[in-house]
Each structure stands twice: as structure tokens, then as C-alpha cells.
Design a protein around this nucleic acid. Structure first.
Lengths: 153, 153
DNA sequence: ATAATAAAAGATAAAAAGGTCTTTTAATAA
DNA sequence: TTATTAAAAGACCTTTTTATCTTTTATTAT
């Protein structure tokens, strides 16, 4: 019932690619890592896996980097999670019960279940494309950085 | 936005104590660990912390063990989580953004937020007592064991 | 061809979470 | 008052997750 940091990084960076890259505007790990504030060697590893999973694409060499093809951008967020964490991770019982369903529900089953369906729906129904579009339409920035400058520390 | 296994164990075993123990019926770690199917040395450690946090009570020696006082059973599930994980863990953004609120929401903020409030409400509004009562009224068993006998493996 | 660039691959390291074991302390029944 | 019981305390181990570093391979601009 929860995403690993790896999955979160993967989602954010794939959405970043959807918004900022194209077949003739490839982006290097380093740039992406800095934009969303994630350790770049870690992201590099993640990206290898996402490429193997055909979630994103890459080319080596000068002007190389990562990008999304038309095909890639038709994938959805579930595909990313699937590729990194596997989907079970989201389906586990909130309290850890091995058997938790409507027949034998844990104390919060009927609160958790609708939420799960809701969020899984959102992750399945929209393509990466559409998701990214929505985000940019709303003028949102997806980064792990602290964006409000702090006066004091 | 997710509980550690430790918190889950703590919640289940405290609810177990609420249902099965009293000041003159103390229960040993071993019995509890077996009932909910959790490694007993690990649970022992957890219990030490819960005792320090005044969530549960204990006495050493023959007929000793763990139990809830009247005071203990007025605590709620949030207190348990607070004591083990800290409450922030539940408040973190689902996608890991440092700053995610209604002003600068992540793509799933408006799905996650109501759910969080809902479940935190449930964890705060009912005492351990009431929670356990509800569970026993409904004839539920909280265990991590596989309860449906499998025909084959 | 060659140098430069950027990902792929793979080995390694650090941190956190989960789990175990041994010794000490407190309580109590005999 | 002694043996027994069960938790407390603390050291230690294992696995998983997160992160880094080095070498190799592919691409391309010159």
C-alpha cells in the first residue's frame, strides 16, 4: 500500500520527460536528476530498468540521452509502478493482514479499498502523455526540491 | 503515507491485548506473537517501546506479561503510530514531493488528502477500547496468519 | 579514423528496516 | 530465601533499499 522511493523517482522523472523531451530533444540523467532533485547515479540505474521495460527510451553518445517515443507516452503510471515495485505493493492490506477482503476485512478495509481503486483508476486511465499535459496545464512543477525559499534555518 | 511493519505489529498486538488481557490476566510476548503470527523477539522489542510510551503495561515475573490498564485503553491508534513511526510518516506526499498541499498539489493530492483525513480520523476518534470492541462485535480475527487452509501448495 | 559524449553494465558501499540472541533485573510462588 | 518466570536492556546479525563508482559500449560530430 505504498510506493518505494524508486517508484516515486521513476514516476516524476518519466512525467518530466513527457513534458520536456522528444525524439530530437533528448535529456541526460544529470539534467533530470538536478531538475527533480534526485541522486543521479541512482536515477541512472532506474532509467536502465525503465528502458528495458520500454517505459522510456534512450540513445548513447553526443546529443544522446533519455526521451519518450509516441509509444512510450501511451503507457500509464501503473506501468511504471509495475515495472519498478510490482503492483502487489499497492494492493497489500494497510494493516498487513494476509487475508483482508470484503469477506474478512481489517478495521480500515472499507476506508482503504475505495481509495485504492480511486488512485489506481487515476494511474491507469490516463496516459503518461495526458497526465503530463494536465500537470503543465495547471502550471505545476514536480520536484523534490524545497521550492519555497526559507528565511531562516 | 504508509506504516512500517513495526507499527502494524504494534497496532494489531495492542488491539489483541485490549480484547484478551486485563490487569489480572497478563499475556506473555510469546503467546501474543504466536496469536498474530509475528516474530516474538521483534515484538518483545516493540513492546518495550510501547511500555515506555505508556501505550501498554507490563509486569515481570511469574504470571507477569503485558496488559492494558484503564488508562492505556483510552489511548487511540494514532498514539501507537506516533510512538513507533511518528505521525509524519502518514503525512508525507504520496509521490514524495517535499511541498505538496492544496496550494501546490501533486497530481494525486486531492485523492490522497481526503483518504488521509478519513483514516486519521478513524484512528483518532475511537479509543483502543472502542476499536477492539467493534472488532470483537463483528467477530473478526486480526492475525497475520494464513487463515484459509490451502488445499495444495 | 578519432575524440568526445552519454548510456549500459556491473561491482560495491552505506543506511534503514527487520529480526535474533544473551545477559540482567524484577516479581512471585513455593 | 530460593528457584522460577517473564520482561528489560543492549549487543548483534540479516536483508532490503538506496546510493555510488568504475569500466565498457554505442553514437556522432569533427
Amino acid at each position: 500500500m505504498m510506493l518505494s522511493r524508486a517508484s516515486k523517482y521513476a514516476i516524476l522523472s518519466t512525467l518530466f520527460l513527457a513534458e520536456h523531451s522528444s525524439e530530437d530533444k533528448k535529456i541526460s540523467v544529470k539534467v533530470i536528476a538536478e531538475s527533480i532533485d534526485v541522486p543521479s547515479p541512482f536515477l541512472a540505474k532506474l532509467f536502465q530498468q525503465l528502458v528495458r521495460g520500454k517505459i522510456i527510451s534512450s540513445t548513447k553518445g553526443p546529443n544522446g540521452g533519455f526521451y519518450l517515443t509516441k509509444q512510450n507516452s501511451k503507457k500509464n503510471v501503473c506501468d511504471i509502478i509495475e515495472n519498478i515495485d510490482g503492483l502487489n505493493k499497492l494492493n497489500d492490506c494497510f494493516l498487513g493482514l494476509n487475508e483482508c477482503d470484503s469477506k474478512n476485512p481489517c478495521p480500515v478495509h472499507f476506508i482503504v479499498e475505495p481509495f485504492k481503486n480511486n488512485i489506481l483508476g487515476k494511474f491507469r486511465d490516463k496516459t503518461i502523455q495526458e497526465f503530463a499535459q494536465e500537470i503543465s496545464d495547471k502550471g505545476r512543477v514536480l520536484t523534490l526540491k524545497d521550492i519555497t525559499p526559507k528565511i531562516k534555518k
